[in-house]
């Protein structure tokens, strides 16, 4: 294997990992933007998406199963907001973040009881476990292309929604100035519910497309949430494009770290770089420096 091909292979491997982190990071971003809450149960939405889709795929064709999982998890997201966050909206942001950690544990336990401890996965969307797309001698699983495609489409649709639709603009208004938004007649509570539902849907969609690569288990959410969180922070909170860049960057750093250091160090290098970036740019690589603007898209 020539060294150029080797470097390309590491790069593709990094993109594979990074696309998974990016998928989780987008969801983190959306809830943060609309509500200021860091939702640590985001990984659980990803897990639930995968699990529900696997269950539905026994009865329905794959596209229907994925769509069904996205709708169900979106409803769960809305429900959680209605039950736990709406009554507590006068509490501090920190309280809400702690609630999300509690929720993530509850959802995990519930998943263990509804399903079981076994590892599941959806079939590969195209090809199978051993098929790969060759790019100049290096290989990448076609499923990664599905993940990248899903990310691109989600980010574009999200952008259109937030920029050009009334609902989307209202959501941005809530995040940049809640009082003014309220005076303008926007129902802030409903906007928050919508944000939870949307992020849950995005998480679930991510859970479905990454399921053939990573496989899904009741406790798969938490490690994904940690990496997704790191990706969102590295990119800069408040911007879905930045989240994608952050995710890919972390994945690529990890992959190249493996090429030089023992694999056991790959988390160390990823988080070392994250810390370094935060020292120099506390608002992330692409975030805007002003405190208020962090929550603006």
């Amino acid at each position: 294997m020539g060294s150029e091909i080797l470097i390309l292979q590491y790069l593709l491997s990094g993109i594979t990992k990074g696309s998974i982190y990016a998928m989780v990071a987008i969801g983190f971003n959306l809830i943060f933007s609309a509500t200021g809450v860091l939702n640590f149960a985001q990984g659980e939405f990803v897990m639930l998406g995968g699990m529900i889709a696997v269950t539905l795929s026994f009865y329905f064709p794959l596209p229907v199963a994925v769509a069904g999982a996205v709708v169900i998890v979106a409803c769960i997201g809305c429900l959680l907001e209605l039950l736990f966050f709406r009554p507590l909206r006068h509490h501090s942001i920190l309280h809400m973040i702690i609630i999300t950690i509690g929720l993530s544990i509850v959802i995990q336990e519930a998943a263990l009881h509804i399903w079981d401890e076994k590892v599941r996965s959806l079939p590969y969307f195209t090809g199978n476990e051993i098929s790969s797309v060759k790019i100049y001698g290096a290989a990448i699983s076609p499923q990664v292309l599905w993940v990248l495609g899903t990310i691109t489409v989600s980010v574009i649709l999200l952008h259109i929604f937030l920029r050009y639709t009334l609902q989307g603009r209202a959501m941005r208004a809530c995040s940049s100035n809640p009082e003014a938004a309220m005076l303008a007649g926007i129902n802030i509570s409903n906007m928050r519910t919508l944000a939870f539902g949307l992020s849950a849907a995005l998480g679930a969609l991510g859970g479905c497309v990454i399921s053939p690569i990573t496989m899904t288990q009741y406790e798969a959410g938490a490690p994904l949430a940690i990496k997704g969180f790191a990706a969102a922070i590295l990119g800069g909170l408040g911007n879905p494009m930045a989240a994608v860049a952050g995710g890919l960057l972390i994945g690529i750093i990890e992959a190249f770290s493996v090429s030089k250091l023992p694999a056991a160090y790959n988390d160390v290098s990823a988080f070392a770089i994250l810390l370094l970036v935060l020292f120099i740019r506390p608002h992330g690589l692409f975030g805007s420096p002003s405190g208020q603007g962090v929550r603006e898209f």
């Binding site: 080797l6 292979q9 590491y10 593709l12 491997s13 990094g14 594979t16 990992k17 998974i20 990454i210 690569i213 990573t214 798969a220 490690p223 994904l224 990890e254 992959a255 493996v258 090429s259 023992p262 694999a263 056991a264 790959n266 988390d267």
Partner: peptide, 16 residues
Amino acid sequence: EVYDKQATDLTDILTK
């Protein structure tokens, strides 16, 4: 090579 038990993809290690 030792990898994280929760790793989601191991192509980098296998590339090595």
